[in-house]
Computed example of a mutant assay.
Amino acid sequence: MFLVLALAILVIYRIFCTLPNRRRPVSQANTKSLAVFLGSGGHTSEALALISALDFSRYSPRTYVISEGDSFSAQKARDLELLKETGAGPAQYTLLTIPRARRVHQSLLATPPTALVSLLSCIYHITLAHIPFPFRKRPPFADILILNGPGTCFTLCIAVYINKFLGLSAPRVIYIESFARVESLSLSGKLLYPFVDRFIVQWEQLQEKVPGAEFRGLLV
Rank of each mutant, 00 (worst) to 15 (best):
T18H: 13
R23C: 10
R24L: 14
R24T: 06
P25D: 11
P25E: 01
V26Y: 04
T31W: 12
S33V: 05
V36N: 04
F37G: 06
G39V: 02
S40C: 03
S40G: 12
G42N: 00
G42C: 05
H43N: 02
A49Y: 02
I51C: 11
R58A: 12
Y59S: 13
Y59P: 02
R62F: 12
R62M: 01
S67F: 04
G69I: 09
S71P: 12
S71N: 15
A74E: 15
A74Q: 13
Q75A: 14
R78S: 15
G87S: 14
A88L: 14
P90N: 07
Y93T: 08
L95R: 02
T97Q: 06
P99T: 08
A110Y: 06
T114Y: 14
A129E: 15
F133Q: 05
F141T: 05
A159Y: 07
F165L: 15
L166E: 14
P171H: 09
R172Y: 09
I174M: 08
I176P: 00
S178W: 12
S178N: 02
F179Y: 01
E183P: 00
L185K: 07
S188F: 01
S188E: 02
L192E: 09
F195K: 03
F199I: 08
F199P: 09
I200G: 00
I200M: 02
Q202T: 07
E214Q: 14
G217R: 10
V220H: 06
